[in-house]
């Protein structure tokens, strides 16, 4: 009844990914580990592994939760890193003027 060409197959072709895994923020983990090196950076690496392992196991809800945790720790490590740098500057200035 329609004059339009048939729609593409509903399942999608081979080139269309079924769904993309949630981000694991591994880059943030590496950068914070290198640049400010705090336990938060190490924790971010652990949460990054959980995103990938839960996604591979088919646990999409778990992977999403781990992704949110990883994001939280990426923010925490970033903020802690900035605080640590400010603290270090204050300590260095105090030591230099003492």
């Amino acid at each position: 009844m329609s004059n339009y060409p048939p729609p593409p197959p509903p399942q999608g072709g081979a080139g269309v990914p079924q769904s993309a895994p949630p981000p694991n923020y591994l880059v943030w983990a590496i950068v914070t580990t290198v640049l400010c090196c705090l336990p938060a950076g190490i924790a971010s690496i652990v949460f990054a592994t959980q995103v990938n392992s839960k996604w591979q196991a088919g646990d999409q809800a778990g992977a999403l939760k781990a992704s949110k945790n990883a994001k939280t720790w990426a923010i925490v490590s970033g903020v802690l890193g900035i605080i640590a740098i400010i603290f270090a500057i204050i300590v260095n200035v105090a030591a230099a003027s003492a």
């Binding site: 990914p17 993309a20 895994p21 981000p23 694991n24 591994l26 590496i30 580990t33 190490i42 690496i45 652990v46 990054a48 592994t49 959980q50 995103v51 990938n52 392992s53 996604w55 591979q56 992977a63």
Partner: peptide
């Protein structure tokens, strides 16, 4: 940015190396 999750063992390896 990524269409499939990489092997989590690679990230564990990174963790152990760090």
């Amino acid at each position: 940015t990524r269409t499939k999750a990489g092997d989590p063992r690679l990230i564990w390896l990174l963790f152990v190396l760090v």
